[in-house]
């Protein structure tokens, strides 16, 4: 299996909703419609044995974009599924930690650092962030004010 055959397999199931894709010999970037996102992740993890490497969050000023990186160990390529998250008062999306237990810590880190709420994450507790930073301080956001941070 390589990125193009894998993409064909997925578009056979999801059709046009798979969205625009970008690929080269060992990378595949997918921009699916948000409505099929959960089914797509389930298909990659359960049916095609993709291993969730990590989730990257990118702050694009007007919205957030979550990048779910799946590695196919035996096949030697990486698929990235992109999911935009609206940047409003309380940005949120659905958790995948109940499907992939390894995602729990990754989502908790993003919750603290970017303030994106992962609904139904099984352990919504603080993991990394210092006790002296408030619940509304999100250090990895681009507009986080580093200069005027209290020194304690």
């Amino acid at each position: 299996m390589n990125p193009s055959t894998f993409k064909e397999k997925l578009s056979g199931r999801f059709g046009w909703k798979l969205g625009k894709a970008k690929q080269n010999s060992d990378r595949l970037y997918l921009n699916p419609e948000p409505e099929i996102f959960e089914n797509l992740v389930e298909a990659i993890f359960e049916d095609h044995d993709g291993r969730l490497a990590t989730i990257s969050c990118v702050d694009e000023e007007n919205q957030f974009r979550l990048l779910y990186h799946f590695v196919f160990d035996g096949e030697g390529f990486i698929t990235t599924v992109k999911l935009p998250v609206e940047r409003d008062e309380n940005p949120s999306t659905e958790s995948i930690a109940n499907l992939i237990p390894g995602a729990e810590w990754i989502e908790r880190e993003i919750m603290e650092m970017f303030g994106i709420d992962f609904q139904n994450n099984p352990a919504k507790k603080r993991l990394l962030k210092a006790d002296s930073l408030g619940d509304k301080d999100f250090p990895y956001r681009k507009d986080f004010d580093v200069e005027n941070l209290e020194e304690n």
Partner: peptide
């Protein structure tokens, strides 16, 4: 770089304590 995400191996290995 606009964004540089680092994922170290222990971040995935350690939750296996569960």
């Amino acid at each position: 770089p606009v964004r540089h995400k680092i994922r170290a191996p222990t971040f995935m290995n350690f939750p296996t304590y569960k």
